[in-house]
Write a protein that binds this DNA or RNA. Structure first.
Length: 506
DNA sequence: GAGTTTGAAACT
DNA sequence: CAGTTTCAAACTC
């Protein structure tokens, strides 16, 4: 339930609000903008890439322009919004017939995303080999959404392209369990969906960030033999190396990698806003394991995290601290082996770390068991790892929904019509709730945030808006729009989204 | 820290 | 789907 709903209750029944159906982030609201999202990678549209004569430098018009002022003429400046800061960014490529140089960078250790059949968005992403017969079968040449974008998509669901970085299958250093692991992973993947075990995905997390994730084995070294590899390496960290490495691959969505065309949809990527969950030099910077998503606590550690909102601006959904892995509460499981949803770590897609659990299998040492447990949960309940709060509602009977037993209260949201609670006092005008908050200043701080008018800009709204913008970007690409034309329709779309949001607020 | 309460998850 | 059991977190003392 959105804050708008909370502010516009129709009736109150049995201590529970009956709410208006008109919301800023309702699926219906954006249903008309759920354009089919198809990137026709096979199309031979105009070459958008501008190469210099020596083929050593190129910029990607419409994707990540190399702007002299460090800015970006596209997103971020729309409708008077604060400009997202972009640093100069330039890809450097070698001629295709040049001896490929070697990049080495560690990439994510495992799969990060579990797709399930019920997910509104499915990828179709065959892996294709590079023309140089490299063992990298990278870069699905074609990707598309199987259906229209569901602008009301759940948090953490995949909303954008996934591309593959396929590891060296002859890697002798692969852990012995990898075969089993791959098998388990394969079992996890429904048909017609991309092979997440060998993939890089671009997803949007609950904070409105675009997050690329890949799925390789721990410590695996990716040796890049890309025909168009990156020589330009920022000084800072290898994260950016990884990012660019993958961005180049991700950018090469065409079957014909010689075309060097880059989908306009990659407009969403903002390289200088990358964040990483682990510090440089950690030696295991991407050593994390597959994890589904949840609304609270920790999220899949991104290999590359690209914010869609300017740094420092919250989506109003989850605070930074909530997402900080360091803030993850340790579990105390004793009987579940931390492989059931009783375990908060497991339920949140986290591996146990610094927990007090006993006989824990939710760790990197028991990946196979963990994979199977995840599969089991998803098989039984496809939405098992989806955000629960706001989608399911609580079922409290004795706590009046005013204690942390109540998931809604714990999540600092009011109960909604989706809840099945009895004797609920967790609604807007509840005297008990008000009294409780008055006597708990710490709770006031968090609960009162809900009253912020901007709180209606929920994750759903952000996702819907981003979906609309991406749809326009893809449309522009498909129809061979010029950069100016593309920017125009995207900005117009953004304006319409803002108008819709504004109208919803008012 | 031990015991109790609570509600979600798991099971039947 | 409903009822029961299991489980771990929240809470109380």
């Amino acid at each position: 339930m959105s804050r708008l709903e909370e502010q516009n209750p129709k009736t109150q029944e049995n201590g529970k609000l009956q709410l208006s159906e008109t919301t800023a982030n309702s699926p219906e609201k954006y249903a008309d903008v759920g354009h089919p999202r198809t990137l026709d990678s096979n199309s031979d549209s105009a070459d958008h890439t501008d190469f210099t004569a020596d083929h050593t430098n190129f910029t990607v018009p419409g994707v990540i322009p190399h702007c002299s002022d460090g800015g970006w003429p596209g997103y971020g400046r729309a409708a008077g919004s604060s400009r997202m800061d972009f640093t100069n960014y330039q890809f450097v490529m070698q001629p295709h017939d040049a001896q490929p140089s070697l990049h080495q960078c560690q990439i994510a250790s495992h799969g990060d995303v579990l797709l399930h059949q019920s997910s509104p968005l499915h990828f179709i992403s065959p892996c294709l080999s590079f023309p140089n017969n490299s063992h990298f079968s990278s870069l699905g040449g074609h990707w598309s959404f199987k259906g229209p974008v569901h602008c009301s998509m759940y948090s953490g669901e995949i909303v954008d392209a996934g591309q593959s970085i396929c590891p060296d299958t002859s890697d002798d250093n692969r852990p012995e369990t990898n075969g089993q692991q791959q098998e388990a992973l394969t079992e996890l993947m429904p048909q017609n969906q991309m092979d997440i075990s060998q993939s890089v995905m671009c997803i949007r997390n609950v904070r409105g960030e675009m997050v690329l994730m890949n799925n390789c084995s721990p410590g695996r070294v990716l040796q890049s033999h890309l025909p168009g590899h990156l020589d330009y390496i920022p000084e800072d960290t290898s994260y950016d190396i990884s990012f660019k490495e993958n961005l180049v691959q991700t950018s090469s969505l065409r079957k014909d990698s010689q075309s060097n065309q880059v989908p306009l949809s990659l407009l969403a990527i903002q390289p200088d806003q990358l964040t990483s969950s682990e510090p440089p030099g950690s030696g295991h910077m991407f050593n994390h394991i597959p994890r589904p998503f949840s609304l609270y606590q920790q999220y899949p550690k991104p290999v590359y995290s690209m914010r869609l909102v300017p740094e420092g601006q919250s989506t109003g959904v989850v605070s930074e601290s909530q997402c900080d892995s360091k803030s993850k509460k340790p579990c105390n499981c004793t009987k579940s082996q931390c492989l059931k949803l009783y375990c908060d770590c497991f339920a949140n897609g986290d591996v146990c770390s610094n927990c007090n659990c006993i006989n824990c299998f939710n760790n990197t040492e028991h990946e196979l068991e963990r994979y199977k447990a995840i599969k089991f949960c998803i098989d039984r309940k496809p939405e098992a790892f989806r955000p629960k709060v706001g989608n399911k509602g609580c079922n409290c009977k004795r706590s009046a929904c005013l204690k942390n037993y109540c998931e809604c209260f714990e999540a600092k949201i009011m109960c909604s019509s989706t809840c099945k609670c009895v004797g609920c006092r967790n609604y807007k005008d509840s005297p008990e709730r008000r009294n409780l908050l008055l006597h708990s200043p710490d709770k006031i701080a968090t609960h009162e945030k809900e009253k912020c008018p901007l709180s209606c800009i929920t994750l759903g709204v952000v996702e819907a808006t981003c979906g609309c913008l991406l749809a326009q970007a893809e449309k522009a690409e498909k129809e061979d729009y010029t950069l100016v034309q593309a920017e125009k329709i995207i900005l117009e779309e953004f304006g319409q989204c803002l108008t819709s949001i504004f109208e919803s607020i008012c």
